[in-house]
Design a protein around this nucleic acid. Structure first.
Lengths: 204, 204
DNA sequence: TCGTGAGCCTACCGCTCGGTAGGCAGCAAG
DNA sequence: CTTGCTGCCTACCGAGCGGTAGGCTCACGA
């Protein structure tokens, strides 16, 4: 039951925000009453922390994969693809993260510093290597590039519903099209054309 | 007074969200009581609509400039710079927009369709021209590129507080550095290097 | 001088919120 | 059989919410 509550709360917080979701609402989503919910989580604040911790656990579970992708000699696109994969696996993750960035930036700053920095440092290093061997634009700012890549992946999935209308496609096709262009754009934003087999993911 | 309320509400909604802000809070920010506030705006919902409309008015005011920049023979970077300028002029705008995208995607979709589409169509056209004369990558997806550009500008300014820690700089320097790389990245994501005087904004 | 409306106030309404008290079924161990 | 724990319930609490009623002051025009 604890897990069911966690899952329902994650979904509702992501969809309506923390302030826009009541405990009764979450309780009724898992077919119990509010005091029963408060038996499992002592307060709403505790539930919020648990929801965040749960998402962080999922992220930590895929972190080795991300780090391995960054460390390998493969192209960086695979790192970005893994990142997109993590957030596409559950769209609530992107929404939740974005809400946290808006509602509690200081708190999120700490989490980012602790858990995302190692990954970013590794990608940075790979980018600098690419710059040294000439495959990556010399005037790219490695760290800033990483930040923008994360922003694109998270923001893109969270706001696809609103901005998708700018494409004429149906929503599903629009999302696929956006993801493809996202990967190509991140690729073009980094690699110099024609360099050592680094091809854009979508083909030409 | 109506304007003062609007301004305070904009700031608080952007910072804490609609559900996280009470009418008393807004009232006390302009040093009146809640019923006096409700004299100027009949309900909280009406105030929300007014806040959004006010931001939209500001956007409509700069739209001609954006369209002119897109239509001119200058490089597209100036369009993006104008877009960044609009959101940097008041950071609440980016936050508010992102919150709206999360809280009321259907509603925002309508607004986007009505007010942003003309600008996007124009930029698309310019991109296609660039593709025809070879200055822009042939495999770029013009509309999807525009969507990502908007996401980067809006999301970047709204979440700079959280993600800025990934750079070691102090917050102010981090933001400037991110904006510079953002423009360069958007440039590299579009233009083929060395094509007809299209230089990245930051120089090399 | 008086009426009128704008703009603000205090006092209050019903409602929902997060959270607590206390009880009741079921089950497992002594 | 009893004891005690788990997991749920109903009933309730105070606080804060959005919103209303009605009255006060003050400026302004007839």
């Amino acid at each position: 039951m604890r897990d069911r509550i966690l899952k329902a709360a994650t979904h509702l917080f992501a969809k309506q925000g923390f302030d826009g979701t009541s405990l009764s609402e979450i309780a009724s989503a898992v077919e119990i009453k509010k005091p029963s919910l408060l038996y499992h989580f002592r307060s709403k604040a505790e539930l919020r922390v648990a929801v965040l911790a749960s998402m962080l656990d999922h992220f930590k579970a895929v972190l080795p994969e991300l780090l391995a992708a960054a460390a390998s000699q493969e192209q960086l696109a695979s790192v970005l693809r893994a990142l997109v994969g993590f957030f596409r696996a559950d769209r609530d993750r992107a929404r939740l993260l974005l809400r946290e960035a808006l509602d509690r930036p200081e708190e999120l700053r700490g989490l980012v510093h602790e858990h995302v920095t190692p990954w970013v440092r590794m990608v940075e290093e790979r980018i600098r290597q690419g710059q040294a061997d000439g495959s990556i634009h010399a005037h790219a700012d490695p760290a800033a590039y990483c930040v923008h890549a994360i922003q694109l992946v998270v923001g893109g999935l969270a706001s696809a519903d609103s901005l998708g209308v700018l494409l004429d496609d149906d929503p599903e096709a629009a999302e696929a099209r956006l993801t493809e262009e996202l990967l190509r754009m991140l690729h073009r934003g980094l690699y110099r054309p024609g360099a050592e087999g680094e091809r854009p993911p979508g083909g030409e």
